[in-house]
Amino acid sequence: MSFLEMENVSVGFGLEGFRTEVLRDASLSVEENEFIAVIGFSGSGKSTLVSMLTGLLRPDKGVIKLKGKEITRPGPHLGIVFQNYSLLPWLSVYGNIELAAKKVFPEYSKAQRKEHIERYIEMVSLTPARDKKPGELSGGMRQRVSLARTLCMQPEVLIMDEPLSALDALTRANLQDELVRIWEEDKRTVVMITNDVDEAVLLADRIVPLTMGPAATLAESFPVTLPRPRDRTSLNTNPEFKKLRNEIIHFMTAMNKEAKMLRVDRGLSMPDVKPFDFTAA
């Protein structure tokens, strides 16, 4: 049995009769200390998947188990990094992390807690911004604070919901390297949701595509066998990388076409009307 297990999970929203099914029979199994990237188009139910993995949302059908135990509610052992950071704007960087640390490790003494928090601030290289408010930080810095807050809870699984998608390309590359470094330093099971194929290939051990919604499901995964550490500069010329990337892109675009073909045309059928040419008569 795997570390994190998702079996035939279905979920939908809305009342009966107007129901939209978001996920149908999605299954996933993640090994301990594995880095999984879930990749999908926008609107395909990625955030819903995250909500269920972290227990914020209960599936309608199927079960999600962590170490064989069903996940029924959120908790600090299911660390989540939100897409839009979710930092409390009235607390400083330190305060935001402290809120989590205090709750998760109530047994720590003051000095211990301080050391713990500062270790994680250091890990995401934010020591100079320790006492700044989120409003004074850039997007990348805010995402680092959010990451540090989640990491300081020392979760069993780290679930990241498009953590880098709101950032500009340079900051993004920078943070990707940081993520790898942190993961190497502090090994744990990671599920990352993303819409960037390159990012997925660069970071993950395995890539799981999410099919088009509605009623999306998780398709067969692509293992990434590239050796670590992966260097982004040389990666572009690496034939294996190129091959894998093309495969995934082909799979995704084909899926997109298929989905478009499958879509029921609910539009009104227009009568075939042509303008009458009065001058010709």
């Binding site: 914020l56 908790g75 600090p76 409390l88 989590a100 998760v104």
Partner: peptide, 26 residues
């Protein structure tokens, strides 16, 4: 904000710490 409530849920904050640490400041 719903995200702030989610933070409270993930941290499993009790009623009063949720009120005084998340809801009221916000």
């Amino acid at each position: 904000e719903k995200d702030h409530i989610n933070v409270a849920r993930v941290l499993r904050l009790g009623f009063f710490s949720r009120l005084f640490k998340i809801v009221l400041p916000s």
